[in-house]
Design a protein around this nucleic acid. Structure first.
Lengths: 236, 236
DNA sequence: CAGTGGTCTAGACCACTGA
DNA sequence: CAGTGGTCTAGACCACTGT
């Protein structure tokens, strides 16, 4: 393992996700962990603080660190995760239909969202996510053409994120999500099985690379009864 | 200031929120900050990492730390904030109507949400939030009676959080939010100015104290066109 | 009281950036 | 090359919990 503290973090995150460590279990103390991993206490603390931030454990001064019962089956959860990650983790039957995949000049709205001039081309990918036989989500992705290598149908059918991060070495550093409830468009009605719903849950996702450049804007349009978003927050 | 690193964090968070530090401004290097604050570099790093986590700055190895243009006027934002905090920060005209304030035995649903037996009493507070003359949000709070001191109307009219945290010394450590879109109930229709909308955005909020006990469950029901939730996420 | 986590220090080496 | 942030160490003192 490269990073010691990331190694410790992964060890415990995995054990908690798998259920090997039950909620309310007390973790070894920081000094014990430092000895176990033959490292310093500050390094152990980095790992434990990461676990605490992500909702795996809770630390109490004078007592110790304890496994939380909060994190369990709560996906999709706040953060940077692709549809494939979520669907797979939840064990869903899913399918992706690529509606279109092309390089276009962005409309005024998309250009402004990506902070581009309307003459800069973007990759435009429209996809429908089908879960249990129903078309639930309409994903409209826009990626800066100047940054992204040529995309293919098979990439989009799988996961664009996975392709960019693993095959190429894209370093995605952070993202901003804005969640609203919008009236369904005619496009929504024709692309999704809306079952009479007149509204959709919209997640607008702005993704940034490590050098602080915005490179992707995504609009995810969900059928309302299938939408669910979980946020875990800690006091500063 | 008690904590050095929290002091540094506040200094820069304030400057960025006020706009004294413009986006893309380069912060002093960690070594410079350590000298400026007469502390060690690790302490400075704690402050900068907090700023980065909360979306104020972005750090690039070999280059430095830079102010982000992401955080600005994006409330309500992910995290632990009360309605009063949000409304005040956004400069809104707001009013709170307390519909009811009583100690009751919880129904089966609320009892299960609070992990209580149905015989344990809870404080039940129903409030309507009015913004710009329209009733936009219906807040249904349930607090464990065994934990919370007597509540009064004037407390509920202001902010329960503020009262618990400042006047008493309640230490709120973390919270889990679940956001969904639900069909509007007859209660929603009678309490809110729904303008014909048939759905509401529902935020279910589970609040925990420092000893890891759940003490509050809140259901916030928003008129869809006035609902907006922002999430900022960083890669692990 | 001994044990816990929270903060802090003064060093060290590394990988990365820009000139 | 010097400067940056990322990781790590081996100590230290504190505030808090339980016994």
């Amino acid at each position: 393992m490269d990073n010691i503290y990331l190694g410790i973090y992964q060890d415990y995150a995995d054990q908690i996700e798998k259920g090997d460590l039950k909620p309310d279990t007390k973790l070894p103390s920081e000094n014990e962990l430092a000895q176990m991993y033959e490292t310093s206490r500050e390094t152990v603390r980095k790992a434990l603080n990461l676990l605490a931030q992500n909702g795996y454990i809770h630390k109490i001064k004078g007592k110790g660190s304890f496994v939380l019962h909060v994190h369990k089956f709560d996906f999709p959860v706040s953060g940077l995760v692709s549809f494939k990650e979520i669907a797979t983790k939840m064990g869903l039957q899913w399918k992706t239909h690529v509606l279109s995949l092309e390089v276009v000049k962005p409309g005024r709205y998309v250009a402004s969202q990506l902070e581009l001039s309307p003459s800069d081309p973007v990759w435009q990918v429209f996809r429908i996510r089908e879960v249990a036989g129903e078309r639930i989500i309409l994903d409209k992705d826009y990626l800066k053409e100047s940054v992204v290598p040529p995309l293919t149908l098979s990439i989009c059918q799988d996961s664009i994120y996975e392709f960019l991060e693993q095959n190429l070495d894209f370093k995605i550093s952070f993202a901003k999500k804005v969640i609203t409830m919008d009236e369904a468009t005619t496009e929504d009605h024709s692309c999704l099985d809306l079952r009479g719903y007149q509204m959709v849950a919209v997640v607008r996702n702005y993704v940034y690379l490590e050098d602080n450049t915005l490179f992707q804007y995504t609009e995810s349009r969900h059928r309302p009864d299938k939408f669910r978003f979980v946020d875990f927050a800690r006091r500063p």
